[in-house]
Simulated scan of single mutants.
Amino acid sequence: MKVEIWSDFMCPFCYIGKRRFEAALNRFPQKDDIEVIYRSFELDPNAAYKPGVSMAELLSVKYGMSVEQAQASNDNITRQAAQLGLTYHLDKILHGNSFDAHRLVHFASQHGKMKEMTERLFYAYFTEARNLEDKELLADLAAEVGLSHEEATSVLKGDAFSAEVRADEEAAHRIGVRGVPFFVLGGKYAVSGAQPEEVFMDALEKAYGEEKPLILVNEDDNSAGACTDGSCDIPSKS
Rank of each mutant, 00 (worst) to 15 (best):
K2H: 09
V3I: 15
V3M: 08
V3Q: 05
I5G: 00
D8R: 12
F9T: 00
C11Q: 04
F13C: 04
Y15R: 02
I16M: 11
G17H: 03
A24N: 07
R27N: 03
F28E: 03
F28T: 05
Q30W: 05
Q30T: 00
K31S: 12
K31P: 01
E35K: 15
V36M: 06
S40P: 07
F41E: 00
L43T: 10
L43D: 05
D44W: 09
P45A: 07
N46M: 12
A47W: 03
Y49K: 09
K50C: 01
P51Q: 14
G52S: 06
M65F: 10
S66G: 11
Q69L: 04
Q71I: 02
A72V: 10
S73W: 12
D75P: 04
D75I: 07
N76W: 11
N76L: 06
I77Q: 06
T78E: 06
T78V: 04
Q80K: 08
Q80Y: 09
A82T: 12
G85I: 11
G85R: 12
G85E: 07
D91M: 10
I93G: 07
L94N: 03
A101G: 07
H102M: 12
R103G: 08
L104C: 01
V105S: 00
V105Q: 02
F107L: 01
H111L: 02
M114Q: 13
E116N: 11
E116M: 08
M117S: 00
E119F: 12
L121I: 13
F122S: 00
Y123Q: 08
Y125V: 09
A129L: 13
L137H: 00
A139Q: 06
A142S: 10
A143Y: 01
E144L: 15
H149V: 05
S154Y: 05
A160E: 11
F161E: 01
S162P: 00
V165S: 06
R166D: 07
R174F: 00
I175W: 03
G179S: 15
V180K: 02
G187K: 15
G187T: 15
A190N: 13
S192T: 11
Q195M: 09
P196T: 14
P196H: 13
E198M: 10
F200M: 04
F200V: 06
M201K: 01
L204Q: 02
I215F: 14
N218I: 02
D220Y: 04
D221F: 09
T228A: 08
T228F: 09
S231H: 02
D233T: 13
D233W: 08
S236M: 09
